[in-house]
């Protein structure tokens, strides 16, 4: 089966092209819950892009975050709530990115007065940036979320975490969109939860989204226990991927997981993840809810830790003198991903 050129997993020049052709079109950056008030911000770096997303009194906005004076970051990296004002010499900006106040300056010495503005798009509570300046295309997102049972406006997360991965972002995508590895890699997470390599794996895709359901076989099914807790429970692990950097999963219709990648270089990627309660979990008795949330944190942290050495070892292998990539029929979503990726890389 055709696949991406192994060089694309370690080449910095291909990574630069990916930033221009893929990540500048649609980049998930967080949910509305990350911006509780006006002046809440999230300041990020994507390779050489330093940008900030802000909640303003006229909605969500995204700007280049490099001060027009002498290039300090206007919003410090990370998130919080502050006026849109540079901390170095106090140059302050309006909610359209124009310079509002520049203390003790001479107008004649200011030729640039407006920050570049980027596109912002919202699907449910999910926020995306279009660093190419256009509004990101999001028309397929809602349908993908519906496929896995994520509500339009889930409650704020009960756990958030960050994981640094020494690998190319595409290796994380590929690891996420196949169930082939479950029996080999996940003895402390998926296997005891009933999911393994021979579980049923159903999948489908749309233009830039794909989704799957991993459903245990009769012999590992725990459906009767789960349905004792709630009639709304299922025994399945559902996964959705929104190209290029967002993953969402639902487990047994109790726990939702949302995770996104910010690539730092061709061989280094930050993975941010959070867990939230699905409607069926919200309805359980408080003691059961608490324990299920604790178990979900343990399960997720464990499964990510189980995957990490494997994706990082693929990075080493793909960067070696004799890399291999032979996709199997058991990895149909990866083939689909490679197809879409290749298309995006060609269409400038």
């Amino acid at each position: 089966m055709p696949s991406i050129d192994p060089a694309a997993y370690s080449s910095e020049s291909i990574f630069q092209l990916e930033l221009e052709r893929i990540f500048s079109e649609r980049l998930f950056i967080g949910t509305t819950a990350d911006f509780p008030e006006v002046n809440s911000y999230k300041s990020l770096r994507l390779a050489k892009n330093a940008f900030t997303v802000r909640r303003t009194d006229v909605g969500f906005k995204s700007f280049n975050n490099v001060c027009l004076h002498r290039s300090a970051l206007i919003d410090p990296l990370g998130s919080g709530q502050r006026p849109f004002r540079c901390g170095y010499h106090g140059w302050a900006y309006d909610n359209d990115g124009s310079l509002r106040v520049a203390p003790l300056t001479d107008e004649k010495c200011i030729s640039r007065r407006v920050l570049s503005e980027y596109g912002i798009g919202q699907a449910g509570d999910l926020l995306f940036v279009g660093l190419n300046g256009s509004k990101p295309q999001l028309d397929k997102v809602e349908a993908a979320l519906n496929q896995i049972g994520v509500p339009q406006a889930p409650p704020p997360p009960f756990h958030t975490d960050t994981l640094m991965q020494e690998c190319n972002w595409k290796l994380l995508v590929e690891n996420n969109i196949e169930g082939y590895h479950l029996s080999f890699v996940h003895p402390q997470s998926f296997i005891p939860a009933g999911f393994n390599t021979s579980s049923r794996y159903e999948w489908d895709s749309d233009e830039y989204t794909c989704w799957s359901a991993c459903i245990p076989n009769e012999n590992t099914s725990k459906l009767k226990y789960l349905q004792k807790l709630s009639a709304a429970a299922t025994h399945d692990f559902r996964h959705a991927y929104v190209f290029p950097n967002l993953f969402l999963t639902t487990t047994n219709q109790f726990v939702g997981f949302r995770s996104y990648m910010i690539p730092l270089s061709a061989q280094r990627t930050i993975l941010k993840w959070e867990l939230f309660e699905l409607p069926a979990l919200l309805k359980l008795a408080p003691a059961v809810r608490e324990e299920m949330k604790k178990e979900a944190i343990r399960f997720t942290a464990t499964s990510l830790a189980e995957d990490k050495p494997l994706v990082e070892s693929c990075q080493v292998g793909l960067s070696s003198i004799e890399p291999n990539l032979q996709l199997q029929p058991a990895e149909p979503r990866i083939s689909r991903f490679h197809q879409y990726y290749s298309g995006r890389m060609q269409n400038v």
Binding site: P192, K222, Y225, L226, K228, L229, L284, A285, P286, A287, V288, E290, E291, M292, K294, E295
Partner: peptide, 22 residues
């Protein structure tokens, strides 16, 4: 397994009105 522990917690809640922790 951990699901059995949850079932016991749910039973203590439903049948005895008692909140057990994991």
């Amino acid at each position: 397994d951990s699901l059995n522990a949850l079932s016991v917690i749910a039973m203590a809640d439903a049948d005895y009105g008692v909140a057990l922790s994991g």
